[in-house]
Computed example of a mutant assay.
Amino acid sequence: MANKEVQKNGKFAGSSTLGKLSKIDPHGFERSDNFDYVSYEIFESEYLGVLAHRAKRWNQIIKDGDKKTIHSNGKVKRFCRKGIPDCYRAKTWMNLSGATKRMENSLDVYEKLLETGCSNDVELIEAIKTDLNRTFPENIYFNGKMTDDKRQSLYNILLAYGRRSPAIGYCQGINFVAALILLVVKDEEKSFWLLSTLLDHILPQYYTKSMLSLRVEMEVLKELVSSKYPLCQEVMERAQAPWMIVASKWIICLFIDVFPIETVLRIWDCMFVEGSKILLRATLCVIKQNETKLLLCKDMPEIVKLFESIKTDTTVLECHHFMQKCF
């Protein structure tokens, strides 16, 4: 979290950040002028204690960073649900998703994808370049404010993926997913393999033109809401507000720009070991937490406005409590 509090081994030296928050968060996102520093500092002063405890537990699994391979088991799954420390997050995502093994079994593939063109290159390159400067313009690593500008690496990752998986190629939303992976993993080739693993194996057919898996997930969501929160579903149906319109962005962007970044990363910690079901768990948790407000909505605009405000909701900001409620 706060850079001054974090030591190299993932432990935390202090438990309070009040008055110390930078205008740029640890992942490079610039905090807006209306950012609620007070609420965030209160949250972070508590959350640092949670992170310190989790870092100690993860040190035992990773053996202070020396362990090269992490295998999925019941203990690791529980640990992922409780959060992966930043210093171990990239290695854990790569290992548990299977991306490391795919990269090791595909030597030179990434370089060859960048060197060799394909039949849809003109359309693919144009689409990527159109969205490149729209990707995280509030992040110093993507807006030209740092010498370590990651836009070229992001372009390479998206181009290589589009060439390798022409059935998907490139569509809006993938740029944000790839960019966040790059911010966490920090290595271009590893980020490519993690993105490929995510889109082709963990979330297959979410990003195809038909969005088949996404549409299925929205139908499953409707059934779950009807079962668990029937009054909420009645409100949605009266307002003629299908979940595909209201919640599809949450799933397709994997909650980027929907939740605060800490909460997004916590959801991803689970996604890379448990798969897509965490996306529905998180969606249901949001609906449950906003049930009272949703029941007061009279039409679709009110529903959309309600769910657009969740990013500033303190119940979502408090990512550790939110994740506990998901399970």
Rank of each mutant, 00 (worst) to 15 (best):
G98N: 10
K129N: 12
L306F: 08
S213D: 03
I256Y: 04
D299R: 13
E30R: 15
V258P: 01
N175H: 14
M300F: 15
E223W: 05
P260N: 04
G162P: 08
S119N: 12
S119G: 00
L114S: 11
K63E: 12
L96K: 07
E223S: 13
I181C: 05
L159C: 07
H53I: 11
L280D: 01
A160N: 01
V216E: 09
V220T: 12
C297W: 02
V122E: 15
I42M: 11
E302M: 13
A2F: 09
F142A: 06
K82E: 14
A55W: 00
K277F: 12
W93C: 10
I168D: 09
F142C: 03
G98Q: 06
N73H: 04
F35C: 05
I245S: 05
S72E: 11
P137D: 01
S309V: 02
N105P: 00
L51D: 01
E302V: 07
C118L: 02
K325N: 11
C171V: 15
F79L: 14
C171Q: 15
I174T: 09
K91V: 01
F43S: 08
L113N: 06
M300L: 15
K4P: 01
R89M: 01
L317Q: 08
E217A: 13
K67V: 08
I62C: 02
K112C: 09
L154I: 09
C232Y: 03
